[in-house]
Design a protein around this nucleic acid. Structure first.
Lengths: 333, 333
DNA sequence: TTGAAAGCGGTACCAC
DNA sequence: GTGGTACCGCTTTCAA
């Protein structure tokens, strides 16, 4: 049977109160009693039951992480970096993929609340604002990562998406491109990227392509390819394409190849995220890098400090993207 | 404050015992009492606290998943498929990356046991046999996935790695290759793949390359590239390379390119796993596909039936790999 | 059919 | 310093 605090107490000839004290290192205990109890705990291989202490209001040392899709490299890399940091603090992660579906978001949120997770990290793609607002009101520790709710008072570690878009446009324009198509799914961060993108164009008096439209479907290779094909075979053929994530960009590369053209000689392509796959495609993808490791570490630290009740004021940490030049972009000839 | 079973009981003018019964649909309750209680639960938005019921011996509806590295596409895809199936049953997943480190394996195992997870799924790469044996003895539900412990009586969903290696060698030999280098990390499944590989060679009286050695370091792009470079610049240059996962294969492709040669014209390359990235490299990777979705579903079902105490006999389910031909392999000219 | 009460494994306050 | 004990929120006999 599982060994409980009672077993330890009996074996050490002390009360459970005393054992509890040595476990948590609280109150006053005599040196020899303490040593005795510790010896017994070791001998019996006693593992305190976290359910029980959680019931008494202690923490579960578990954090809920909601992301759109664990199989998407950006999110799995992000999850991994959060996980690493969490383990340093003795926390575990319950990971849930929401597929951008508000029903799933709500379902998992409720489920995890019932499991008394100590806090939530909501990654980009979380759409259900009211629910989040509700949680903040209930004082449930919630932090947002890789997504910004600018209208909203909530702890956030975000990327400067505006700047990301701006950087992308600037790079492409510097290479001489003027007709730059954009491939994006209609979510908040992409709207920001688009805004930054347009801002950069405007400053150079270059017009934004009028045939732009959001993709529908997930930000995956296929939709990216489809949209790129549409642009490349349309009336107003772009000389460069900025895709709002690496997967979409890869789709675009495939489209270009399928049309018998070359990247970057005929069409330059840029991605966003700088995930593993950006280094793997041919040609290697020029992309806007998100500091994934750092974002993971920062949100985790943020949520921990919220859980501990340290952080009283709301903060928004905005990390900056950077341009990673590889071979999928080239000067316009 | 959180609403408890007491609040519901008071509001409905019944005892907590009655409320408990309607929650769990156990015992006998009058129709109208039941309806009344249900109405109150809805009205108060009552969410039973799972900690409390777990303390009473009920399940936590949580499964621990130990994998080597969440950022590795194979494992994130596998985790995602397990997660999906788990959610269908109302289970959550606590995911831990072990980096193939026995210390981490043990640490997480202990931590999760203290959290009363209902069972464990151990993915390929789990090295610490004794610990697993111990858990099986303690009747903790444990299932293994994507890894075989043939010497060991434990529920498993495995891939026929031997056959995978056999398929790979057969395919390359059919293309005329006789000098086939192998890139692999020294873990169980790769030893099996290698065994199958050699078997196929032997049947055709083709010799296994004598300069073979295991890589050290993780099964990632860089080590793959390094080893490929070593083979390709050595005395006995292979005409084809079989890498034991897609990441390593990509490293090999990069090595070939770096040497100014072409895949598949100068060197054919094969991978293993058939993850997303196999479709993304250039040229698209010929690889041995693991039925990842299916493996995920099957282990989850397996562990659930163990948790429910249905499955009494140990079973080993072996799924079969299949060859996916793309463009990284070509006939030897 | 319903409810009182005894736990489950801890924590923490308050005497001693 | 140490121990008694009242909970935490829920499940489960066992009476009524």
């Amino acid at each position: 049977m599982k060994v409980t605090i009672y077993d330890v107490a009996r074996e050490a000839n002390v009360s459970i109160a005393t054992v509890s004290k040595v476990i948590n290192n609280t109150g006053r205990i005599g040196e020899k009693t303490k040593r005795k109890v510790e010896e017994v705990m070791k001998r019996l291989d006693y593992q305190p039951n976290m359910m029980a202490s959680a019931l008494m209001g202690k923490q579960t040392k578990t954090i809920g992480l909601l992301i759109p899709d664990l199989a998407n490299p950006f999110f799995s890399e992000l999850a991994r970096s959060i996980e690493d940091r969490a383990h340093e603090f003795g926390y575990n992660l319950v990971i849930c993929s929401t597929d951008y579906l508000p029903e799933k978001e709500n379902k998992y949120l409720n489920l995890l609340k019932r499991k008394n997770v100590d806090g939530f990290i909501l990654a980009s793609g979380f759409e259900n604002l009211e629910k989040v607002e509700e949680m903040v009101k209930e004082k449930v520790p919630v932090a947002i990562v890789a997504r910004d709710f600018p209208m909203f008072s909530i702890n956030t570690v975000a990327l400067d998406d505006f700047m990301g878009g701006y950087l992308a446009a600037s790079h492409l324009m510097k290479l001489g491109h003027q007709k730059i198509a954009v491939i994006a799914r209609d979510v908040w961060s992409n709207r920001e990227r688009l805004r930054g993108f347009k801002q950069a164009l405007e400053e150079k008096n270059i017009e934004f392509m009028s045939n732009f439209e959001y993709i529908d479907g997930p930000s995956h290779v296929e939709p990216g390819k489809k949209m790129a094909l549409k642009y490349l075979t349309g009336d107003d053929v772009p000389t460069a394409i900025f895709a709002c994530n690496d997967l979409l960009a890869i789709g675009a590369i495939q489209a270009v190849k399928e049309l018998g053209k070359s990247v970057p000689n005929d069409v330059s392509i840029m991605g966003f995220d700088n995930t593993l796959i950006a280094t793997i495609v041919e040609p290697p993808l020029t992309t806007i890098a998100q500091p994934i490791q750092n974002m993971g570490k920062e949100v985790l630290d943020l949520i921990i400090s919220m859980i501990k009740g340290e952080k009283k004021e709301v903060m928004r940490l905005t990390l900056l993207p950077s341009l990673v030049e590889r071979n999928s972009t080239a000067p316009l000839v």
